[in-house]
Design a binder for these strands. Structure first.
Lengths: 186, 186
DNA sequence: CATGGTTGCGGAGACACTCTCCGTTTTATG
DNA sequence: CATAAAACGGAGAGTGTCTCCGCAACCATG
C-alpha cells in the first residue's frame, strides 16, 4: 500500500527548484547550496535529501526546459522540411539559452559528462538532435559522418555566459555555418 | 638602483607552475591551491603572493603554450595559402589542447571573460585568429560577417574534457565544417 | 479527533578550500 | 659580517559542502 506523499515535502521541493533556478541564473552553476536552502527557509539537510548532488539539482532545475526543447524537435520533424526543421530547432536552442537563462556551463556538464549518458534529459535531447540530423542526412542535405551532439556542443561553446553581449547573434550565424558546412561534399 | 631578484623566489615560482600544470590537468581548473602549495613545499601565502588569483595562475601556466600557438599562426600566415593556413592553425589548436592537456574549461575562462580582453595571452590569440581569418576573407574563401573568436569558442565547446573519447576526431571534423560553412554565399 | 507509525525536517558539526596577516627567515649588497 | 629589503610560512577567519540523527509534522486508521 502506498501512502500519499507528504504535502510539506512537495512544497519544499518546488520552492527549492524556484530559488535554485534564480540562484544559478544570478551566481552561475557554483552558487552556494546552503545559501539556497537558507533563502528557501529550510535546513541544508532538506535540500541535500531532495537533491543529493549539485548535478542532480541542476538537472532537476532545467529538466522541464530541456524536455520542452526535445518535444519541440519532434513537432518540427513532423511539420517542416528536414533541414528547415534542424535549423529551426538549433535556433530555438539558442533562444532558449538566452531567454530562460539556461546557463551554458550547466548544460555543458549535462551534455559533456559520459556518466550521465543514460540520464533522462540527456537521452531526450540526444534523441531529438539525432532524429533531426538523420532526416537531413536522408534528404541529402547533411553528411552522415558527424556526431549530432557536436553541433550542440559547438553552440554551447559560443553561448558562454561570460562572452560578449552580442553572443546571441553570433550563435545564430554559427547555426547557419554549421549547417552549410555539414553539406555532403561534391 | 635595481636589486637582483632573489633566487629562492624564482625557484618557487617555477616549481609552482610545474606542479600547478600537473594539478590542473589531473583535477581540472578547480584544483585546490593550498594543495598545490603543499605539494610544492611552500606555504599558501607564498603561492598567493606569486599568483593572487586562480585566474592569474591558470594564465601563467598556459601562457607559454598559448603564445607558441599564436606565434605558429604568424608563421602559417606567411608560408601558406590563406585558408590552408587557417585550417592548419585550427587543427594545431585542437592538437595542442589534446597533447598538452590544455584544459578546455580554463581556456573558456580565458576566452570568455570580457574582463580579460586586454590580457596579454588573450590579445595574442585574438590577433592570431583575426589575422588568419582576415586573409581568408580577402582571398574570398570566407565571409566577413563573423567574429573570428567564435570559431575558437565552438572548438572549445567540443573539446570539453569530459566528452567522448573520440572528441579529437570530432573536433577535426568540426574544423572543416566551420570552414566550409563560412564560405561566402553564392 | 486522537493516536501511532512513518516520513521528512533542521541545524549542529566535521571537513575542505580560500585568502590574509604578520612574525620570522633568507637573501643581496656594501 | 652587518643591514635592510624581500620573501617565506603557517595560523586562522570566513565560507562552502555534506552528514547524521533527535525531533516535529504529517497521513492513515478507528
Amino acid at each position: 500500500m502506498q501512502r500519499k506523499p507528504r504535502a510539506d515535502a512537495q512544497r519544499n521541493r518546488e520552492r527549492i527548484l524556484e530559488v535554485a533556478k534564480e540562484a544559478f541564473a544570478r551566481h552561475g552553476a557554483n552558487a552556494s547550496l546552503d545559501e539556497i536552502a537558507r533563502q528557501v527557509g529550510v535546513g541544508p539537510g532538506t535540500l541535500y535529501r531532495h537533491f543529493p548532488t549539485r548535478a542532480e539539482l541542476l538537472q532537476a532545475v532545467y529538466r522541464a526546459e530541456l524536455e520542452k526543447l526535445a518535444a519541440a524537435g519532434q513537432k518540427f520533424s513532423q511539420t517542416m522540411a528536414p533541414t528547415d526543421a534542424l535549423r529551426a530547432w538549433l535556433f530555438l536552442f539558442v533562444d532558449t539559452i538566452a531567454a530562460k537563462q539556461l546557463i551554458a556551463p550547466a548544460l555543458n556538464t549535462l551534455l559533456g559528462d559520459p556518466k550521465k549518458v543514460f540520464e533522462a534529459s540527456y537521452a531526450k535531447m540526444h534523441q531529438a538532435i539525432r532524429a533531426l540530423v538523420k532526416r537531413s542526412v536522408e534528404s541529402g542535405d547533411i553528411r552522415g559522418d558527424l556526431d549530432p551532439m557536436d553541433l550542440l556542443r559547438a553552440l554551447i561553446g559560443v553561448s558562454n555566459v561570460a562572452s560578449a553581449p552580442d553572443w546571441q547573434a553570433s550563435a545564430r550565424r554559427l547555426v547557419d555555418i554549421l549547417i552549410i558546412g555539414s553539406r555532403p561534399v561534391g
